[in-house]
Amino acid sequence: MSCRVQGWSGTSSPICDIVFDGPALHSIPLLDYGAPRCCQGTGQGKTRMTDRQPLRIGKPLFAMVLCTTLVACGGSDELALEDTSPEAIFTQAELELARGDPDDAAALFAEIERLYPYSDFAKRGLIMQAFSYHKDQDYENARAAAQRFIDFYPADEDAAYAQYLLALSYYDQIDQVGRDQGLTFQALQSLRTVIERYPDSEYARSSILKFDLAFDHLAAKEMEIGRYYLKREHYPAAINRFRAVVEEFQTTSHTPEALLRLVEAYLSLGLTDEAQTAGAILGYNFQGSPFYDDAFRQLTGQGLSPEARGSGWLTDVYRRTIQGRWL
């Protein structure tokens, strides 16, 4: 492909001589993974807007789009978008995504919404804005675009995807346990919305998995703080954190260690009934765990055994979860 400026026609637009030697734009595979349903690739090297309305851009339109974008053609770094059809802008935005420029793609999708707010391309451009911003890790703008789509088109087939993107914009920021967990709570809330509002969607199963992982993440934070207090011999504060894991996050992978740390903390305080009860719960539910082996050694080392004793909160847990007595 080449573009040569032959001169000016006396108007504000340059005259371009376009020689295009490559494939037509509709033969270039663009978004085959991760994009909303309305804009996913067909798997045959074509980009489609919906299952019923394929978008096909031939060489003349492709040349026109390039002519508006190349500096050599127009002498300007800006697109003359006001004179460009929404279809052409959409195609150029997809091309930017394929080139690995989601930020530029998002800006172009936003222009469709601005210039053609009542067109069908505006709706498609809005969901693609959210996708592009998320791909660019611009999570705040991704959330804003996804929320606008949900507000404007709540019954659309891509509403579930918009809600899923909104949840991901929180979920993808909770990678570190040591950070503030406000984002984790927001991710859980948004993921629950996907699960409850769109239970039959293709995003529900992924949301359930991510919900469990985010829930486990919160338990990990409680454990981190509890270990901090335990190491510094602040036993009551440590017990409160480990108790939260046992009572509120009992389905997570951190429950066995939380019970072990309760044994350690209660033994350090001389509260043997509570330590033995924690050991009994640990032994009943996780007998093959190395955490139980450690707890058993600590208890027997002081002449104690893992058994339910006393009438504290751990005894209530033992009665409900092991004996099945809730009253």
Rank of each mutant, 00 (worst) to 15 (best):
T91P: 09
H134M: 07
T315M: 15
P306H: 07
C3S: 12
A88W: 09
S305D: 14
K123Y: 01
I322E: 04
L165I: 09
Y164E: 01
A35C: 11
G74P: 01
A63L: 08
I57Y: 09
S311V: 07
T47C: 09
D180Q: 10
Q181M: 08
G324S: 04
T84L: 10
T252D: 03
E264T: 00
T251D: 02
A162H: 00
T193P: 08
L269I: 11
A105Y: 01
P117K: 00
E140M: 10
A308S: 14
W313L: 12
T277D: 15
S119Y: 02
D32M: 03
S9V: 09
A280Y: 15
V317I: 15
T91G: 12
L66Y: 12
Y164N: 08
Q147E: 15
G100H: 06
V194K: 15
E82H: 04
Y139V: 05
F185H: 14
R319H: 09
L267R: 04
E202L: 07
D151M: 10
L165T: 01
Q163K: 03
K231G: 02
N141Q: 13
L262W: 00
D101N: 14
L61F: 13
R124Q: 09
G279A: 04
S253Y: 07
R241V: 01
T68H: 08
E247Q: 11
D175S: 12
A146R: 02
D51P: 01
R48W: 03
Q173T: 11
G303I: 06
